[in-house]
Design a protein around this nucleic acid. Structure first.
Length: 571
DNA sequence: GCCGTTTTCGGCCCGACTGTTTTCAGTCG
């Protein structure tokens, strides 16, 4: 519901942009869309409880947008968008999605040449028809053709681990270039977003031209989009775009802040600067009149100049962090080193690649104090789920391994299927013998929301269930999240003292950041686990931690930062 | 279209690169 409405407002903004409507109106829709995406509560529920007035309490939503939400709740449509869509050919928006082709050019192409699709555009460009239009030289046409190719090859956004790997590769390449003072990967990767559109790299150097020359020659670079004195953009061989920015040392903090975003966070801080008679850009925080530099070398001194606490990058999402920083209420976010154990992993017994002993030794090497072996149960046959009889044997094996291996506690668990009717896949007699019981949905993903909510809340009320794992069941870019009333799930979890998992796998990152924040507000305990299917996947924990940080979580909210005795007591 | 410890009207963040523009518009981050 929230996502659908957010998309409607994004689309409205795009069409208005095509029409060259008032740019501030466009921004208003974009802002509303973004705030809706960040909302933990359901818009429909908010509207039903408090009507239009309640909707207007949400930042960026005024009377007109509230009415559109009302219309959508009642009719499932927003007539303003439908009307706008009719003014353009079907799929016309695809043109504006081509890099280098903006709304003004797209509109002109349509008016002059009736171009309304990427296919027609390619054809017209190759036939030499574009050059005859005003403002269209041969380079611009070539640029558009290149944009068409990039669009075709692009897979959209990248998972966090792939983006991290490419960033690390580039850092390694840059380490071979001299004249680099500092280097920092910024953008959505620094903020720890679940998916990454492109990489933003900031470099401090007195010889920017030299850095640029080296950058565009890296062997991993496929295509150079632009190259200037302080900024260059390239496309890598995996179609990932990389933007490089070079500034002087005295602007490092300002540039890092600007380049890290998110965009709305940057804009909000710039507005505050303006109110104070200052100006904020990548070239520092300055007095608007005298141009005197107030702060710029570090991010810390910039926030301090505003009288704010330092805001960690993961919180810079325009979700209330500026107000919190002004009030001194930025939480002390959880860190990877505070994790004492991993409570979700598989072995050869089901669909993992390693033995109990190998997993335990690998976890010990990471410095963990305890782990939970949690193989699949009988219903998940595709993952070799264990029957109850097999489970009993598996329990004995885990207990034996625990006696054998010193220095780490190996707990017995299982990732138990929640059946379609909300019952669990093992009888209570078996569940009773497990130290910790994980529960989740592994089938019938498409159940309607009401049934799915009933199914999961029923499972949570089973007294043996300790943790609901990967609660939304999304696989990023592969499978949509299940339809479920997450607010109700969280409230039920609180009631029955069930913890929620933040699954660290880059394809999942589930619970998502927004619901982490909500869980914290409701006092629901969190566990961050890897769901490792091999020893090397135990290292994915960092992605779960960064997701938890994006959800404002502190160590005290996360059970597996605690010693085992305390953890078991709280579960 | 939103918003208000200057304002219910008149504002709304700031800068780089490209191409074809003889002074700047379009696009992007």
């Amino acid at each position: 519901m929230n996502t659908e409405l957010a998309n409607i407002f994004w689309e409205l903004a795009e069409y208005l942009e095509l029409k060259q409507d008032n740019p501030f109106k466009i921004r208003a829709y974009q802002k509303a869309a973004q705030n809706i995406e960040a909302l933990s509560g359901n818009l429909q529920t908010i509207y039903k409880k408090g009507g239009l007035a309640a909707l207007q309490q949400i930042p960026g939503i005024g009377s007109h947008i509230a009415e559109k939400i009302q219309e959508y709740t009642k009719t499932g449509k927003v007539s303003a968008l439908q009307k706008l869509k009719k003014e353009f050919p079907k799929n016309f928006l695809q043109l504006v999605e081509i890099p280098g082709l903006g709304p003004k050019t797209a509109l002109m192409l349509y008016k002059e040449l009736k171009i309304d699709s990427p296919e027609k555009l390619t054809k017209a460009a190759k036939a030499g028809k574009l050059n005859k239009l005003p403002g269209m030289g041969s380079k611009k046409v070539a640029n558009i053709l290149r944009g068409l190719e990039i669009k075709q090859e692009s897979h959209g956004r990248f998972l966090l681990d792939e983006a991290t790997a490419h960033a690390e590769y580039l850092l390694d390449e840059f380490s071979k270039v001299s004249e680099i003072g500092k280097i920092l990967v910024c953008g959505s990767l620094r903020r720890g977003c679940a998916t990454i559109g492109d990489l933003d790299i900031l470099v401090i150097s007195h010889k920017p031209q030299k850095i640029m020359d080296a950058f565009v020659e890296f062997s991993i670079v496929q295509n150079v989009l632009s190259k200037g004195k302080t900024r260059s953009s390239v496309v890598l061989k995996n179609n990932m775009q990389v933007d490089l920015r070079v500034v002087e040392d005295k602007y490092f903090g300002a540039a890092a802040h600007y380049f890290t975003g998110c965009k709305a966070h940057d804009i909000n801080l710039r507005k505050i600067a303006m109110q104070k008679g200052w100006k904020l850009s990548e070239y520092g925080l300055i007095q608007a009149k005298t141009k005197k530099l107030i702060a710029g070398k570090t991010e810390e001194e910039i926030f301090a100049a505003f009288g704010m606490q330092y805001i960690p990058p993961e919180l810079r999402e325009a979700r209330g962090e500026l107000k919190a920083a002004e009030a001194g209420k930025i939480p002390k976010l959880i860190e990877l080193k505070q994790i004492r154990g991993d409570l979700h992993m598989h072995t050869k017994a089901s669909d993992g690649s390693n033995t109990i002993e190998q997993m335990a030794e690998a976890a010990k090497a990471l410095g963990y104090e305890y782990i939970l072996i949690s193989d699949h149960t009988q219903s998940t046959r595709i993952a070799h789920g264990l029957t109850e009889r097999e489970m009993l044997k598996h329990i004995k094996e885990i207990r034996a391994a625990n006696k054998k291996i010193k220095g780490i506690e190996i707990l017995v668990g299982a990732e138990v299927d929640i059946l379609r009717d909300g019952k669990l896949d093992y009888c209570d007699e078996i569940l009773k013998q497990l130290d910790i019981v994980l529960a989740t949905v592994h089938s019938s993903f498409k159940l309607p929301k009401v049934e799915m909510t009933k199914r999961i809340t029923a499972a949570l009320s089973n007294k043996y269930v300790n943790i609901l794992v990967h609660p939304s069941d999304r696989l990023i870019g592969e499978r949509d999240p299940i339809q479920v009333d997450m607010e109700k799930v969280l409230q039920t979890a609180k009631k029955h003292n069930v913890a929620m998992e933040v699954n660290s796998h880059p394809r999942r990152l589930d619970l998502t950041d927004i619901y982490c924040k909500r869980a914290k507000e409701l006092g629901v305990n969190i566990v961050i686990s890897t769901d490792a299917h091999s020893t090397h996947e135990l290292k994915l924990m960092k992605y779960g931690v960064i997701t938890a940080r994006r959800g404002w979580l502190e160590a005290k909210n996360v059970l597996n930062t605690m010693p085992l005795a305390k953890l078991l007591k709280l579960l």
